[in-house]
Write a protein that binds this DNA or RNA. Structure first.
Length: 829
RNA sequence: GCUGAGGUGGUGGAAUGGCAGACACGCUAGCUUUAGGAGCUAGUGCCGCAAGGCGUGAGGGUUCAAGUCCCUCCCUCAGCACCA
């Protein structure tokens, strides 16, 4: 008998699987399809980390189980390789990011292969490959052509440290989610995708998908739909010293989700930065004090948020409650936010905690007025129903180098006479009206003169530059390459300039999951609507979509996951993809923390290196440990010696499985072992579906602990099969050792354990004949006795009494509780 | 502050209202001439020589029976955060 030596068997089987192509997915066939997906990794210079292994292994197990269950499985892999770390590395070392990326993906590929994942490597994609991003660019142009990409001068979130503009989704509590530094507002012209147009579809789509509830909650919060009304509160013409037309303004527009409470509205509260205040300099009697208050409130807002409520009454300005006709004062308060609603509220102390707190502090009236119907209020006040969203449009430009060039050209000549872009502008003007209602997002005229690069000129390739350093002026390094920037207008042929901003790193990941279905075609075909809608593309998309199970990190709930859904909703509307919701099911793994409970990081020196682990213990032990270490969805700290458990387990499996003659000597498995085997098959089958990988592994451990010398060769192979998805190498080796194939190189699909059917458990064998009857006196366990299942209460009493006579004699038996096949409880007093 | 999920040995963690601590790490003792993070056997929640008692964040309750259900409180994590 040889020792268990993963170093020898693992590379051997990895090569054999690759050669035989058993993990290659077919694009059609008799079998039902199954599409498993993990988030394709960002190939950082640090290499694969333990978190990747956790996610990849879990879905590898699911995928392998599905293959054994007879599915045609697609489990693909690729590289999300655009992004800042690579670019920053390039800046530091002066090496082209293309070269660095190649090195990093090579490392990742080697590491992933060393872990024995059943990826279909023939569909590998790389977002930085011009043959990939020509399609990313083409898809962006579909948004542009439909008027869903627009350029506007807006205040963006600018990270001065990264020298990059950020999307709302990339800002966490005023800080850059990447570097943690403070984010400032900066006015810039940006390309923006009109994600708000899809707010309702993104919301409604959640109803039909199987996402973790917390992911749905996060998305709903992020979209933040609220239905309410906008109501104008006119300025009072009656009030002394007040005018109905103060500073050219005759009313204050408020947004409320509770128009029905308007009878209780006893004052108007404005945000400190409400635009009307500046126009009332002359009318406001106490303007100097108001100004001081506003300055203070702005300072506070930058510091802590939960400052005590405070406000100041605008003397000389009085509004009318349009429902009651009563005069009410107008206050500026620190608890109303300028960027929410209209920046003005009708304060109803009776119904709103915050208004009440404020009213009590300043002795403002609290009116217990009756509620009205929405219809009545809207009619009476001339207000209108409004739906508002927290979701903002997606700022899509980045002033950096390492991203997809935005495939647009600016032509001053074409800007003069709109013609080419007429459809686009017609749509925009229609949306301008909608957007006023919805989000106040105005469209500028900045799209005039922007011309799409024609399909046949895609990709717009990222030119090699000498200097990757971003600039403080907020211009992309590409802006400095005049020979690239200056080009001919595709529309009129005149001189024109290219857009020099690039796309955010979320662009390539917004559609990569459909790219896997058509990976081969994407490479060879030039992007065009004809190609994309061809049967060649569409049949494959129809076959594979939606993704049956997508697993990834919780941190992507409001970024990648929202963006990807938005792209698919849009592409579905364009008739380009067969489903609107790409992910039928979404789960998330918990983080793998370092042994010290902190995040693994280079600077802390607490990173666990997968290469060293695989080298020391083998891929199977690493995979098994990461599944065994704790509940899948929970953050968990790496334990130095924890891997020894799974390692010893695999040694036990090896010791049983490699003594073939022993297994052959035992013709029949002992009954209790057989029962345990079938219980194990059931438990493992179910646990995989619920991602309860830790208990699946422990169940198999229990079984292997009782199996030595008691199991037949045939039954042993059932254990190997349910273990195979977890530990694919050792199980393949042991399976072949039992004489299932004479070849070390698999030359047909049937010879691998991974192509064997998933074992079914025998329901009849699960049932135990005996059980331990628990005997309690007054609810306390005093004895147990082995009994036949199905015994009656009388039989149980007879068996139990002698065992607990000592306690029964202490009093009189008042009551007996009997739970069949479980326990008997004597109540004595 | 609100919402959700949690709090179980020295550690990671198991437990359809029915023997709490499965499985694993660690530890203790013994065996084995034992290259190796070895292997094997026994033990390992706490107190107690034992009988037994006590034990799932704290306190109360329901129940023959509570880690599990209900109430109050404390703490941890996640999400939202003055969203009108």
């Amino acid at each position: 008998m040889t020792r268990y030596n993963p170093k020898e068997i693992e590379p051997k089987w990895q090569a054999a699987w690759e050669q035989s192509g058993i993990y290659k997915a077919e694009d059609q066939g008799e079998k039902p399809k199954w599409y498993s997906l993990i988030e394709f990794p960002y190939p950082s210079g640090a290499g694969l980390h333990t978190g990747h292994i956790r996610s990849n292994t879990a879905l590898d197990i699911v995928s392998r189980k599905r293959r054994m269950q007879g599915f045609n499985v697609l489990y693909p892999i690729g590289w999300d390789a655009f992004g800042l770390p690579t670019e920053n590395f390039a800046i530091k070392t002066g090496r082209p990011p293309q070269e660095v990326t190649k090195e990093n993906t090579d490392t990742f590929r080697r590491q992933l292969k060393s872990l024995g994942y059943s990826f279909d490597w023939s569909r590998e994609v790389d977002t930085t490959d011009p043959n990939y991003y020509k399609w990313t660019q083409w898809l962006f142009l579909q948004f542009f052509k439909e008027g869903l990409a627009y350029k506007d001068k807006i205040n963006i979130n600018w990270c001065p440290k990264c020298k990059i503009g950020l999307a709302n989704e990339e800002v966490e509590q005023g800080s850059c989610e990447r570097c943690g530094g403070p984010v400032e507002a900066r006015e810039k012209e940006q390309w923006i995708l009109k994600m708000t147009e899809y707010a309702d579809k993104l919301l409604d789509g959640l109803d039909g998908v199987d996402f973790l509830p917390e992911i749905k909650t996060q998305q709903r919060n992020w979209i933040g739909r609220s239905e309410g009304a906008e109501i104008n509160f006119p300025l009072s013409p009656f009030s002394k010293g007040s005018t109905p037309q103060a500073g050219g303004i005759s009313s204050i527009k408020v947004f409320t989700t509770r128009p029905d409470t308007i009878y209780g509205a006893t004052f108007i509260a404005l945000a400190p930065n409400h635009s009307a205040i500046g126009n009332w300099k002359l009318e406001i009697g106490n303007y100097p004090e108001v100004k001081v208050f506003i300055e203070k409130a702005k300072e506070e807002a930058e510091g802590q948020r939960n400052a005590d409520k405070a406000g100041i009454c605008l003397q000389g300005i009085t509004a009318l409650n349009p429902a009651t006709g009563e005069e009410i004062p107008v206050w500026v308060v620190n608890y109303v936010l300028g960027d929410v609603g209209t920046g003005a509220i009708m304060a109803v102390p009776q119904h709103d905690e915050r208004d009440r707190e404020f009213a009590e502090k300043y002795n403002l009236p609290i009116l217990d007025k009756p509620l009205a119907s929405w219809e009545e209020v809207l009619e009476k006040t001339g207000g209108k129903k409004v739906v508002r969203y927290k979701l903002r449009d997606w700022v899509f430009s980045r002033q950096r180098y390492w991203g997809e060039p935005i495939p647009l050209v600016f032509c001053a000549n074409c800007a003069k006479e709109p013609g080419e872009n007429s459809k686009h502008e017609a749509r925009n003007s229609k949306q301008i009206q909608n957007s006023k209602v919805q989000t106040e997002n105005k469209y500028s005229d900045l799209n005039y003169g922007w011309v799409a690069v024609p399909d046949e000129q895609l990709p717009v390739e990222l030119p090699r530059v000498e200097k990757y350093q971003p600039t403080d002026t907020g211009e992309s390094p590409l802006a400095g390459i005049t020979e690239w920037v200056n080009t001919a207008c595709p529309s009129c042929g005149g001189p024109a300039t290219r857009e020099t901003d690039v796309m955010p790193n979320w662009a390539g990941s917004s559609w990569y999951f459909i790219s896997y279905c058509i990976a081969e075609n994407l490479k060879s075909q030039a992007p065009s609507i004809k190609q994309f809608t061809s049967p060649e593309f569409q049949n494959k998309l129809k076959y594979w979509l939606p993704i049956d199970w997508y697993n990834g990190g919780m941190e992507h709930s409001t970024r990648h996951l929202l963006y990807a859904r938005f792209w698919m909703q849009f592409l579905h509307d364009q008739g380009l993809v067969p489903v609107a919701e790409p992910f039928a099911k979404r789960t998330a793994q918990g983080m793998v923390l370092a042994a010290d409970g902190k995040k693994m990081s280079k600077s802390l020196g607490n990173v666990v290196n997968p290469d060293e682990l695989v080298n020391e213990f083998g891929a199977d032990a690493v995979r098994l440990y990461e599944m065994f270490m704790g509940p899948f969805d929970q953050a968990i700290a790496w334990a130095e010696r924890g891997i020894l458990g799974p390692w010893r387990f695999l040694e036990k499996v090896w010791n049983i499985g490699s003594r073939v003659h022993f297994l052959e000597e035992r013709v029949e498995t002992l009954p209790e072992v057989k029962r345990k085997l079938h219980q194990t098959i059931k438990k493992v089958s179910e646990d995989i579906e619920g991602l309860s990988m830790n208990t699946a592994v422990s169940t198999m451990m229990e079984f292997v602990n009782m199996a030595p010398g008691k199991i037949s060769k045939a039954d042993w192979q059932l254990l190997l099969r349910i273990l195979a998805p977890f530990a694919p190498h050792i199980t393949e080796e042991l399976y072949q050792l039992l004489g299932n194939s004479k070849h070390e190189v698999l030359n047909s699909k049937g010879q691998s354990i991974h192509s064997q059917p998933w074992p079914e458990y025998d329901e009849a064998l699960l049932v135990e004949e005996k059980f331990e009857l628990v005997i309690q006196v007054n609810g306390k366990v005093r004895a147990t006795v082995s009994a036949q299942k199905g015994i009656s209460q009388a039989q149980a009493e007879e068996m139990a009494k002698p065992a607990v006579s000592k306690w029964l004699e202490e009093g009189e038996v008042k009551k007996i509780v009997f739970v069949a096949d479980r326990l008997i409880n004597f109540i004595v007093s």
